[in-house]
């Protein structure tokens, strides 16, 4: 947005100077028109300089030199008001202060040109300066408020991270606890129970086995029929060797047996497993 603004200002300046040169009779009409066209194209040429920290001041100096020259040559002091637009086209604070100094020098030049009796121009400049200072003040106020809000939202984000981490843990804790209680009261089918445990405990396999009629429900990778005998006999070592896994958790719950199988590593907080064991 700002880039187009800069182009637009330079275009307006050179177009105005060309129009002034055509409308009024000056001695050096053609050179002034050529100079304005050159001024616009030099901005396009020097545009990459604006991204540099030091070189961009060359562009600004050329701008103010051109305005100063035009004011001096044409005796039209109102053309110097373009320097105010240039001040408003920059973004950083330091640039604005430097351009304000440049602007004041142009203002002094144009006052000198009219012998310090042009009061309309004086008031126009005072008005513009007042609006620039107001803009500054508003900007500073906005920035301080923005920073305050940013700090606040950073703190909220930090708290949110801690809380959501704890929430995740307690959610799992509650789900597992509730599922076990419901299974004991037979409110929940074994298939659903297995599903909940598989989701919350990150197991490779969850098996729940009814000892009386040997019906079982299983979820996961190691759902083989021939491991049921190991479970009924309580032979954990045999089961480990059969499946080639490192961790097997076996829990007797009356008629039911619950088996959790982890291949190489217990991928859940130990506190969650303590609910079951």
């Amino acid at each position: 947005m700002r880039n187009y603004f800069g182009f637009l200002i330079r275009f307006i300046i050179s177009a105005t100077v060309i129009t002034t040169a055509i409308l009024y009779q000056y001695d050096f009409k053609v050179p002034l028109i050529i100079l304005s066209v050159i001024y616009f194209f030099q901005y396009i040429l020097l545009y990459p300089f604006l991204s540099d920290r030091l070189l961009k001041h060359i562009v600004y100096i050329v701008d103010f030199l051109f305005i100063g020259y035009v004011v001096f040559v044409t005796d039209n002091v109102y053309l110097s008001l373009f320097s105010v637009m240039l001040v408003l086209s920059v973004t950083t604070k330091i640039d604005m202060i430097i351009l304000l100094l440049f602007m004041l020098s142009i203002f002094g030049l144009s006052l000198y040109k009219y012998g310090f009796y042009e009061f309309t121009l004086l008031f126009l400049y005072v008005g513009f300066l007042a609006s620039i200072f107001e803009f500054f003040r508003k900007k500073l106020e906005f920035e301080s408020r923005y920073n305050k809000l940013l700090e606040l939202s950073k703190n909220i984000y930090r708290d949110n991270l801690i809380c959501s981490d704890k929430l995740d843990f307690f959610q799992r804790y509650y789900n597992v606890n509730l599922a076990i209680r419901k299974l004991k009261e037979k409110d929940i089918k074994p298939e659903e129970f297995v599903e909940i445990l598989y989701k919350n405990l990150n197991c490779d396999t969850v098996i729940i086995l009814d000892k009386t009629d040997k019906s079982y429900s299983c979820k996961g990778f190691y759902c083989y029929d021939d491991i049921l005998n190991f479970i009924i006999n309580g032979d954990i070592v045999g089961l480990k060797n059969r499946l080639n896994v490192k961790f097997v958790v076996l829990k007797d719950m009356g008629e039911l047996s619950l088996i959790l199988i982890y291949k190489d590593y217990i991928r859940v907080d130990k506190e969650l497993l303590e609910i079951i064991v």
Binding site: L150, Y157, R158, N160, S164, D165, L167, D168
Partner: peptide, 16 residues
Amino acid sequence: SFPNEFKDVLKREFFD
């Protein structure tokens, strides 16, 4: 980064 529901929308200003 889990659980973190804001990770897709947060701007660079939240740098820490």
